[in-house]
Write a protein that binds this DNA or RNA. Sequence first.
RNA 1: GGCCCCGUGGUCAAGCGGUUAAGACAUCGCCCUUUCACGGCGGAGACAUGGGUUCGAUUCCCGUCGGGGUCACCA
Length: 550
Amino acid sequence: MDYKDLANVIFPDVKDISYYEEKYPRRNLEEGAIVTRFAPSPTGFVHIGGLYQSVIAKKMANQTGGIFFLRIEDTDQKREVENGVSGIIEALKEFGMSPDEGMIDEVNEKGNYGPYKQSLRKEIYQAYAKYLIEKGCAYPCFCKSEELDEMRQKQEAAKERTGYYGVWSKCRHIPVNEQIEKIKNGEKYILRFKSQGNPEKKIKHHDVIKGNVDFPENDQDIVIIKSDGLPTYHFAHAVDDHLMGTTHVIRGDEWLSSVPLHLQLFQTLGFKAPKYAHIAPIMKEDNGAKRKLSKRKDPEAAVSYYAEVGIPELAVDEYLLNIANSNFEQWRKQNPDADMEEFELQLNKMSVSGALFDMVKLLDISKRVISKYTATEVYDKATSWASKYDENLKELLEKDKEYTLQVLGIERGNQKPRKDIAKWADLKENIIYLYDEEFFANPVSYEFQKINDKAEIAKIIETYITKHFNVEDDKETWFNKMKDLAEEFGYARETKEFKQNPENYKGHVGDISTVIRICLTGRANTPDMYEIMKVLGKESVIKRLRYAIK
RNA sequence: GGCCCCGUGGUCAAGCGGUUAAGACAUCGCCCUUUCACGGCGGAGACAUGGGUUCGAUUCCCGUCGGGGUCACCA
């Protein structure tokens, strides 16, 4: 009885690995092309950190003429969620991170290296597990979980390293014929890797992001095939990334300490190891302590949150890119209109430690992104957001599309577009007063500022309406009339004049225009009033002004 | 606790033996402006700490402190 017999008892029916080696030939890509992937569990939930990884992975693949693929890691049935795969695919799509290969919906996929869902690759893993058994590099372990727990407790009590290794790995030393006998007797078992590592020795590893990291060699006989016949993450990672031709494993840095194990796995399987790029997580400050953005505690951890509040996907992508390479913002400043794709991301410039998530900065980026949109783009994007999250806004926008486009076009498209909308959820408050029905239906109470004498205000307004106001005026004329009005009431035509000789005036043109602004809009702060009057039109302007002083 | 990683302004970060220690966001002031937003200019604000090494350390080494990760039949 030898390893070969053992292997045949355990996996009588699986194919030889040569079958898979031929079925999935090396990819024929140019030198330097990066093949990488996003490999989430199908929980239906995409964490901002997952998006972050995808942004980086996709960018690296695109930049080098490589491939970015999506692999679903569903080897833990306990975590299975209904429609978990499509949720991920949809999210990636929204953020422009659709993969080149992999799952395209709940059941279908594209690409020649599939299946891209691990539960469908069971016999592939088993073939390689069989290969390891034959080589004497893997063995069945009959320990029960209670035994394992007990062992761990002993180790802890003795202040020894925990785990299945060295003298603790009792099943490792069971003779082959006994192993076969136990299996034939129906004893339950799982498969473990027979580690050849020596923790006294160090391995040198160069991580693309973290740089040089030295670890003790791995000597843990980790589980490779679980009792349900599915592989553990570690084993699946080695087999899949080998077969799928992954050149760079870009993943969260919680995996960094598994590198010695993974390297060992690749080596004993006879695979060429990929390069590793371990990404620091996005953190959040919590009572003075730092922790990863948490799915349970932090709404902004979910990628869906950004859609809900109406932050454009592009803004989120750019923010993430900015965390990845801080020189992105310099590049953006020099190339304000360039596509994000043109920026060249460098993995080795990434920070080795986790950045605190900065919503304020994201919103700042978002303001810039939105300020660049045309009125039509704002209309389309805002309407699509509103149709999901704000029916009232949707109605408002759609009631008179032409009018809305004018409203959205105020101070837009020029050299210095307004940067006052950070997210679609802010839009309604920003424009609602420009709609007459809303304006008259919900009169806001406001306070006049410098000029607050009712009679004086009425006189100013009446004079403006009868003597000066004309929607046909060009901006300069309009502006001069405002100054004329100021002068008539004893206010300086120019702010500067007033500042130089305040004793000569009751105030300056700004005080007069503020009166009109407040009467017209109910607000002290608005975009350019000339443009607003143009959009409102003659009738509305007069109606509003009269209404205010009646 | 063992192992590993990290510690530059409030935040993100350049710099990596000799710098007036960049820049962005936030903040404050001024300018621009009929208001606001934008934009422009300027201010305040940092090398965790103690020892070395060195002519000279933010940069190199060690300790301390602080932060993070990891030690599953989860990924």
